[in-house]
Design a protein around this nucleic acid. Structure first.
Lengths: 110, 110
DNA sequence: TCTAGTACCTTGTATAACATGGTATAGCTA
DNA sequence: TAGCTATACCATGTTATACAAGGTACTAGA
């Protein structure tokens, strides 16, 4: 399992990307994250993220009926959400590069 | 700059890797992290990490004189430190794979 | 009626990066 | 000698965020 600390700062960007790919709702997002290999991301994690994104006007909701339970809130990205997602991608790339620099390089005296 | 939240859970592993490469001290580690592209990692970040690693017996210190300031505490990995570092590498790889799965895939309907 | 699955949400806790501020040594220069 | 810079250590308090735990409510099937 990926440690929870390592997910900090990345889950938000991942949720944005999932929503960008397809209009979807919180409960489904948690299932999708698991499929992508993030492990089980509990609802106590997902819902606060969704609320935060909504409060920052990065996503907007549309309520629709479900045929297997309560109504669903489908989310889509706003313009600001797209911008934020691109920033996230840039930051992730920077981190990936930095870590690769550090780990691929072998020993310091090589 | 890489957001601080995104560094959570990874800095510790990076510090271990730096120490694995070469016996070194906290002040130098903060300079090295900057060189590797992590941005400025302040001493208020480095020293707590070092203390934590030491308390968990992942690293051990050797005090040596410096010719340009106070004495330095040089750190090296313990056996447990090596194990922990390998765990970190595994977890990082998992995270990298999960994010690549998510981001490289394009749209959901493709 | 009861359970499982779906779907929403809130509250409190733990972790870790970081800002800030403090101490102390060595070397340089005015 | 005094003052500055770089080096080097450390502690305290704040903030952001993942997550556990618990709650509500609807649908379908046994």
């Amino acid at each position: 399992m990926i440690p929870s600390q390592m997910l900090k700062g990345v889950l938000e960007g991942c949720v944005l990307e999932i929503i960008r790919k397809q209009e979807t709702y919180a409960y489904e997002i948690s299932k999708l994250l698991e499929e992508y290999g993030f492990g089980t991301i509990s609802e106590g994690t997902i819902y606060p993220i969704i609320l935060r994104l909504q409060k920052s006007d990065l996503i907007k909701a549309t309520v629709r009926d479900s045929n297997s339970g309560p109504k669903r809130k489908y989310y889509h990205l706003t313009e600001e959400g797209i911008t934020k997602l691109n920033e996230f991608k840039d930051n992730w790339t920077k981190l990936e590069h930095a870590i690769n620099q550090l780990f691929i390089g072998g020993n310091a005296d090589e």
